[in-house]
Nucleic acid binder design. Structure first.
Lengths: 219, 219
DNA sequence: ATCCCTCTCCGCCGGACGGGGGAGACGGTG
DNA sequence: CACCGTCTCCCCCGTCCGGCGGAGAGGGAT
């Protein structure tokens, strides 16, 4: 038996572009265009009802642009499709916004047919491909330094936060004890708790976790 | 007439991995593995003489890791090949470094054969695909705000940078030694040098300095 | 009133770490 | 050739750290 076809929705305000894309993709075995949209708003609703695997999303569209549409789709569906943002120029600053919005990939309009097809197949098959979520994390970090709340942050007690802050300043247990005016044994207890809750093996890893999670700015 | 085959070089320190990759890729029409390398240094020289179109580059390799090898290849050749960095975990902080180094793509080791093949074809064909240079520009922009080059960064030797990178990943001396395939005593020496040059008192402070100075992005 | 969490502190132990000092090999420079 | 920087590795030693288990005091919740 053949695997189920990859379901695709095209979102572009130019009919000609949609037609061309449909022609290319429909000719491919295993690919199926299940919907089209001419505006961002339309894209959101079409995706909601057709449940495609992949969306080819133009950036520039009336009403809602492709970026905001991507945002809404990714945020609004439990298992959002993989969204490939299509643009004309490589230097489009949209690239960056698209990443933040949760797009899975980027494609230039000047790409040839084979590239298009392969990109769709690749993006549909796996979430472990070229530039995975780590890139999106990077984009988030760039835009919002207070990016990753990290689950363990909330589980730390007040005192443990104090201690972690001082750890992240490079102090030894003895120094932290002096700063907080408690005994060294107390600090050891808190450090142990911090390590356990952060899943860190030693203070260095705990500090790394603190940096990576934005704890230092928020905490 | 058939188009010329895509020339591929494999760089991975594990022979089994290379063998497996070669088996998968060689079975594909239009793909040709023209060289292998087991270390970063070897990768650089093999690429220099074989002039492949695509390099599959493991991150973790003895002598020079995949990131530095990528840097050297991209910087050293007028028309460098497209380099796809291969890693085990999505969360590897290497993703970011790889982008800055000039890698064209990212691939997880757990990817299946088809994904691998398509990724290679895609990356070989075009420079206008998923996440093109604009992403790298983004990465640079992200690194820029941290600005402060820090005087000590330039004073570190190559090996010391390697060690610091691993320290900043939370590894112990013994682990670093295994990764770099040197003795524990050697790592201790490098760590001592790093501490001296950074003015840090212990590894935790050194990691903090690395984060604060943006070394992790630039180094 | 009882329980649970938090903060405080204790001892013991093994392993990791950092300081000190030294040394051989290689490659490039003067 | 001699020198210097880098990378590799060795010794000893004291300290810091983290894991283990335990415990008392206070506060808040039920």
């Amino acid at each position: 038996m053949t695997p189920p076809a990859i379901r695709i929705v095209l979102a572009d305000d130019e009919r000609m572009v949609r037609t061309a894309l449909r022609a290319i993709l429909s000719a491919e075995p295993g690919l199926e265009v299940v919907g089209e949209a001419a505006t961002g708003a339309e894209a959101v609703s079409v995706v909601r009802e057709r449940r495609p695997d992949v969306v080819l999303m133009d950036v520039r569209m009336p009403e809602i642009d492709g970026i905001r549409a991507t945002e809404q789709i990714v945020a609004g569906l439990p298992q959002p499709p993989r969204i490939v943002v299509v643009t004309t120029f490589e230097n489009d600053s949209y690239v960056y916004d698209a990443l933040r919005a949760g797009a899975a990939g980027f494609l230039l309009k000047r790409s040839d047919a084979d590239t298009l097809v392969q990109a769709v197949r690749l993006v549909a098959r796996t979430d472990s491909l070229l530039f995975p979520s780590a890139v999106r994390a990077l984009a988030h970090r760039h835009a919002a330094p207070a990016a990753a709340p990290a689950p363990w942050v909330g589980r730390l007690t007040g005192r443990e936060r104090d201690v972690l802050r001082h750890m992240a300043a490079g102090l030894t247990n003895a120094e932290i004890a002096r700063r907080l005016e408690v005994g060294p044994a107390t600090v050891k207890s808190h450090v142990a708790a911090v390590l356990a809750k952060t899943g860190a093996r030693d203070r260095t890893q705990a500090v790394i976790a603190a940096y990576a999670s934005g704890f230092l700015s928020t905490g």
